[in-house]
Amino acid sequence: MTHEQQVKDSTRGRTGRLGHLGRAALAAAEAGLAVFPLHPGSKYPALHGQRDCDGTGVCAGGHLGWEQRATRDPRQITAWWSQRPWNLGIATGRSGLVVIDLDDGHGETAPEPWTGARNGREVLTRLAQEAGQPGPWATYQVATPTGGQHLYFRAPEGSALRNTAGALGWRIDTRAHGGFIVGATSRRDVGTYQAVNRAAIAPLPAWLAQALTPPEREPVTGPVATVRPRGAAEKYVEAIVRDETEAMAAAAPGTRHAARLKAARTLGQLVAGRSPLDHMTARARLLGAAEAHIGVQDTSREEVERDVDDGLAYGAQMPRDIDTDGGAR
């Protein structure tokens, strides 16, 4: 008997009580995807975070987050989903995926150059037309309960693509290394994630891979600038934070999604560069400034937090270093 047969035999007696979500997790793993549990009815990881880690068990050698613990092991999946009807999380990077997340516009007016578009799907259609390519629809797709769509693609071999927020266009985000998506059959109070095209997962089209590849940073020539004295650097960074958060808070309805992403990207660059700004402070300032957006045109706290987190993550890919003159390199 092979090891794979032994594993199947050891889990067969327990899969009957997994429910449809547990069976979906096993099916995803069998298809080669790395999965982990999300809290029932939500899109948040159920595995403990670093702040709550006691350094025992699987974390005895150092904290392991959801990305490190995402697995294809049917025994671990059975153990997890035997406990509760967790929602299904799929770690995109670990699974070798790039997922294009097309959000609905929810009635917002699309900014230039996307005027007239009603959602991310229409923006992606325009991008494909401009590239002289067919729409990338012939792949596995999941409809989200808020009117969006997830398009699954296989990442290019050796790809280091990471999450993006609005990099392709209005209402389009992507999930790759460092990200995850909610899998089909998962439920939230607003509805269920449903597979609407069960085609095989297609390779990421070359034109999309090129569009998602960030430009290489030019190598620094000459002497590296020294960091400003801490007091002066703090004043300079505080001015940037103040300008960005005030502009975001004052953004008109219809432009607030883009404004949140812009401000968060800028602060993400500072957090990743040599500046006094840390991630926790940046996130708190952004969320505080965006508080007035919540409840306007059905904007949820969850949507605001996602925009802030996505923007910070994207900005971190392009660190902004503060030099002695208060400029940036």
Rank of each mutant, 00 (worst) to 15 (best):
V196M: 08
A249F: 06
A250M: 15
G222K: 03
I181S: 00
V224Q: 08
A206E: 13
A211P: 02
V190L: 07
G178D: 06
A239V: 12
K235R: 12
V190H: 08
R175F: 00
R175Q: 01
E234I: 07
A176S: 14
T174N: 02
V227Y: 12
G183D: 04
E218D: 11
T185A: 11
A199S: 13
A233K: 06
V196G: 06
D243K: 12
E244H: 13
D243P: 07
R242D: 09
G183A: 14
H177A: 13
A211M: 15
G254Q: 03
T221A: 10
V237F: 01
T174K: 02
P205Q: 06
L208S: 05
I240F: 11
V220Y: 08
R187Q: 14
A247R: 14
P219R: 14
P219H: 08
A258I: 08
R198L: 12
G183C: 08
Q194T: 11
A251V: 05
I181N: 00
L208K: 04
V237A: 02
A239D: 10
T226Q: 15
I181C: 03
E238D: 14
I172H: 01
A259V: 09
G183W: 01
L204Q: 03
G191R: 06
V237M: 05
T245P: 03
G179S: 12
A176C: 09
V241P: 02
Q210M: 09
T174G: 01
V182P: 00
T226S: 13
V182K: 00
P223F: 09
T185N: 07
T185R: 08
R175M: 02
G222S: 05
D243I: 14
A184Q: 04
T174S: 05
E246K: 15
T255L: 13
A232E: 13
D189Q: 14
A239Q: 13
D189T: 13
V224K: 07
K235N: 14
L208Y: 05
H257G: 11
H177G: 07
P253G: 05
A206N: 09
T174Q: 00
G254A: 04
A232V: 10
T192S: 12
Q210V: 12
D173K: 01
E246Q: 11
A202W: 00
